[in-house]
Design a protein around this nucleic acid. Sequence first.
DNA 1: AGTATTATATCGACCGGTCTAGATACTAAT
DNA 2: ATTAGTATCTAGACCGGTCGATATAATACT
Lengths: 195, 195
Amino acid sequence: MTETATARRSGAASRERFIATTARLLQRQGYAATGLSEIVAASGAPKGSLYFHFPGGKEELAAAAIASAGAQLRDAIATVFASADDVAAAIAGLIDALAAGLAASDYRGGCPIATVALERAGDSPLLRERTAQAFDSWLDAIAARLRAGGLSRARAERRALLVLSAIEGALILARAGRDPGPLQAVREELAELLA
Amino acid sequence: MTETATARRSGAASRERFIATTARLLQRQGYAATGLSEIVAASGAPKGSLYFHFPGGKEELAAAAIASAGAQLRDAIATVFASADDVAAAIAGLIDALAAGLAASDYRGGCPIATVALERAGDSPLLRERTAQAFDSWLDAIAARLRAGGLSRARAERRALLVLSAIEGALILARAGRDPGPLQAVREELAELLA
DNA sequence: AGTATTATATCGACCGGTCTAGATACTAAT
DNA sequence: ATTAGTATCTAGACCGGTCGATATAATACT
């Protein structure tokens, strides 16, 4: 209840470092391939600290990392959308930003949560739920922009599903092929559809 | 070169069993979470046999499983397409078949190779290449159908990328949400676009 | 006899997780 | 204002279990 200030500040800092490190590793290699030792080493902290901040172990840490990465991308989507004139430009801008990030990571980045979603959806209800929530938050952002562009609520939600699905799929294809082509194709096809 | 017949037949049979078992496990839990012990146990074979058939170990076995699953889905796509009157019906039929398979697996199935593609694209050139080849073979099948529907080669290839991307993405969203909604939305939106 | 295949035992390395000890910093009583 | 007390957080050793991989022997077939 009565919480000490400075002790918590330092503690919260290393907690955030754990989350950020984990999010990056999960994005690149998924859940099962990311060991706690690797997380601890990359965070520059001992293993005991990790289990102080995340008593639930790897799963709780991953859940926090997924939530963090989900919120971060949701904000990034909102930022891109805010500086776009029309719906087509908004989607194109989002895809371009994702394509740039993917290439910058030498095709190791991609969606920050898709890998974990696929790996753990069947076995971890917690992670399944967290990934689903992140996807939903992105869908909400896209659908809101589509509604602002004149679509009805139902149509906007349906179309947002197409847009996000196409982007997620294109990120997979681009990563497997080490080629931004799929993202460009999706951008152009969606531009036609949205026009 | 001179290969014995019956010994190889029995050997080839267990080789196929390894591949089929591995393909199923990779689809459901990915590469890193699937142990060789699990594969061996599910195959009903000893571990020594596995390393006789796949001296390259886990990676070679996974590559064979990916190739097998890729060819199998390519054939399934061709089958669905063959019994569809127009392009829109062909795509809708494919999505319906995938949605049915996903629900039948209690949302554990999905794309047989996407998880491995995301997990290992950055670390295993062999698996990256194999997953990319499988995606390409599906793209070819879809593009061929689109060309038969009247599109030019370039437009068909671009649109096939959108179609496959949207399907792959919808499979992720559906799995994370345990809900066929994303697949249905993509089917309906694509039907409009293709009409 | 000779090769192909199976079968099992075992390897070192690393897995996620737990434990205890110690350092740090804020609280509260005097 | 000092200091004893307490909660927070760090630190690293350590656990049983499982990982992918290998070695060697036995079996089946030509």
